[in-house]
């Protein structure tokens, strides 16, 4: 599904990613943990195609396509979805109109006709329930005046609607109370399946109690320094990230 080889990237001439190797197969859930500034969100940004990042070395293959050659919209149309750490508020664009536009642009890319209004409404209703999204928010401006929890739920609602092959969750848990975290994680779990993969980026182990990963990677200073199973997350929770500094010396 996603193969990252020796990925190097920089922002304003400063190298942030220093050779990432990662393989995510169909249906797998991978978690990336690491201290602040280790490059977790940068990896998400590079994969989604944020413009201020420059890839200097390496390659990324996404389901047979050279990902780095694609524009952000084409990455989305090919089936990649990034749930933002800080979802953007856009006054004047209604949530429902935004979802309809996005869904139909992706369908058009795949050669499918625009979705019928009735079918669209049915799909929206169904996916709203998945994240217990307040129906009143659908006609409001996109994320405008939403609480932190509502914004994150809206990200997962979009993910559910657009039905990507790979969902990247960038610190979706940060700023969520435990109830909202349960709802968000519950939504993601219901979406898991043999054809869908997830890359869960988080600072805290707590989220991984709810979204149980197949693999856990530790990112430090722009490199993956350790890979393991879900037990690694517990170890990190216990020991913190300080031991990584020593580990890095030995790598």
């Amino acid at each position: 599904m996603l193969t990252i080889k020796n990925l190097h990237a920089e922002v304003d001439g400063k190298e942030i990613l220093k050779g990432i190797d990662l393989e995510i197969r169909k249906g797998e859930v991978h978690a990336i943990m690491g201290p602040n500034g280790s490059g977790k969100s940068s990896l998400a940004s590079v994969l989604a195609g944020r413009e201020n990042y420059t890839v200097t070395q390496g390659e990324v293959n996404f389901d047979g396509k050279d990902l780095l050659e694609l524009s952000p919209e084409d990455r989305a149309r090919e089936g990649m979805f990034l749930a933002f750490q800080y979802p953007v508020e856009i006054p004047g664009v209604s949530n429902i109109n935004f979802l309809k536009t996005a869904l139909n642009e992706i369908r058009a890319y795949k050669g499918l006709p625009a979705m019928e209004a009735k079918e669209f409404l049915k799909l929206t209703k169904e996916k709203q329930q998945l994240v217990e999204f307040n129906a009143n928010l659908m006609n409001r401006s996109l994320n405008e005046g939403f609480s932190g929890g509502e914004k994150k739920r809206n990200e997962i609602l979009q993910l559910a609607m657009l039905d990507p092959k790979l969902g990247i969750l960038d610190e979706t848990d940060s700023g969520l109370d435990i109830d909202a975290l349960r709802i968000v994680a519950g939504g993601v779990n219901k979406l898991r399946g043999p054809e869908k993969s997830f890359l869960v980026i988080t600072h805290y182990q707590r989220l991984l109690d709810y979204i149980v990963p197949d693999f856990v990677h530790v990112l430090y200073n722009g490199r993956i320094v350790k890979t393991g199973t879900k037990e690694l997350a517990l170890e990190l929770e216990e020991k913190g990230y300080d031991w990584l500094k020593e580990a890095e010396v030995h790598v």
Binding site: S71, A76, P87, V88, I90, A102, E105
Partner: peptide, 9 residues
Amino acid sequence: FYLRTRGIG
């Protein structure tokens, strides 16, 4: 960028 990551050109 946000709109583009949702597939909107």
